[in-house]
């Protein structure tokens, strides 16, 4: 037994190392790609932004920024300069305010993180409630519940937000839009973000529960006298939850993307509104930083998910055994 355990562990270590390597590569490539998008595509946004009379930058500031980014040099050199800074953790200077990008982003981060985490929890609660309802409620109610994710997927984020504000803010006065950081307002902002995210999650849960419920073992468990609720709780839940772990990780990006709209509508200060302001001002270094930060978060979360699923699921042997096709 001792031998097999060590083989398993070394196999897992290899998996961890290779996934880590891939993650670092993806972040690096994400940076290069976004750099290309903001620098090489037509429309010289940076120069425009710098010479925007509203930016309030002095001639010296502009000269400093031009020298810093190497804007008078070829694009390839700019990319190399940027990469050099990137590996040392320096994300550059904002074109709009002249402040370090890192400061701007990290100032905005806590509010967005709080919003996204609240939304994630809400989305999980919604998704699980829908999936459990579909499986345990009588067929009529379950059928209606089954179409809820599809409806959630068809309503744009900004419509949800505006409807919630209109109903709970203006009509019912549950919260006031002028205090966006109050707990109730935060709850509704998070709900806005959570609804579109809960839909795919609920769908994955429902369909994997469907698949598991059709398996022989569910029938055998019932033939052993277990009630439907017990079969559901003791047998179906765990194997159905495993695919959802992967799905949750994939949806992290949705939360970050959705924050742009949600924060704008609810008037919250965060990474989303920072993005919106930077787009308006053509402040590309800030955009670049946010994109890369999102990629880092996404890669990290997915790394954790990918590495934890094999530990949770006894079927996936962590040693990569190649199975040959043998008759």
């Amino acid at each position: 037994m001792g031998y097999t355990v060590s083989v398993r562990l070394s196999g897992y270590r290899n998996l961890v190392l290779s996934r880590l390597g891939q993650g670092v590569l993806v972040i690096f490539l994400a940076y290069v790609l976004s750099f290309i998008v903001v620098s090489v595509l037509p429309g010289d946004a940076i120069t425009n932004a710098l010479h925007d009379p509203q930016s309030g930058l002095s001639e010296e500031d502009i000269a400093r920024i031009v020298a810093f980014y190497g804007l008078d040099k070829p694009v390839l050199i700019q990319l190399l300069l940027a990469l050099g800074r990137f590996v040392t953790g320096d994300l550059g200077i904002s074109l709009q305010s002249g402040l370090p990008v890192t400061d701007l982003v990290f100032d905005a981060l806590p509010s967005t993180t709080f919003l996204a985490l609240t939304a994630l929890i809400l989305a999980l609660v919604l998704a699980v409630a829908i999936a459990v309802g579909v499986h345990l409620l009588p067929s009529g109610a379950a059928g209606i519940l089954r179409s809820v994710p599809s409806f959630f997927l068809s309503v744009p984020n900004f419509v949800i937000g505006l409807v919630l504000i209109s109903v709970f803010g203006f009509t019912l006065h549950t919260f006031t839009i002028t205090e966006p950081n109050a707990p109730v307002a935060t709850f509704f902002a998070a709900l806005t973000l959570a609804i579109p995210v809960s839909a795919p999650l609920a769908e994955v849960l429902i369909s994997s529960l469907d698949v598991e419920a059709r398996q022989d073992y569910a029938l055998v468990a019932r033939s052993r006298g277990l009630s439907r609720v017990n079969v559901f709780a003791q047998h179906l839940l765990k194997p159905s939850a495993l695919p959802s772990v992967t799905m949750v990780a994939l949806l992290i990006g949705e939360l970050l993307g959705g924050a742009v709209i949600t924060e704008t509508i609810f008037g919250r200060n965060g990474v989303g509104t920072l993005v919106q302001r930077s787009v308006g001002a053509g402040d590309q270094p800030v955009l670049l930083a946010v994109v890369v930060l999102s990629a880092v978060v996404f890669v990290l979360v997915n790394l954790i998910a990918d590495l934890s699923v094999p530990l949770l699921d006894p079927r996936t042997s962590v040693t990569k055994k190649k199975k040959a096709v043998v008759s």
Binding site: S34, G253, G257, V279, Q284, L287, F298
Partner: peptide
């Protein structure tokens, strides 16, 4: 890895 909506925002701003 880049959130779809964010990517779209950055591209359109460029």
């Amino acid at each position: 890895a880049i959130p779809g909506f964010l990517l779209a925002v950055v591209i359109v701003s460029s």
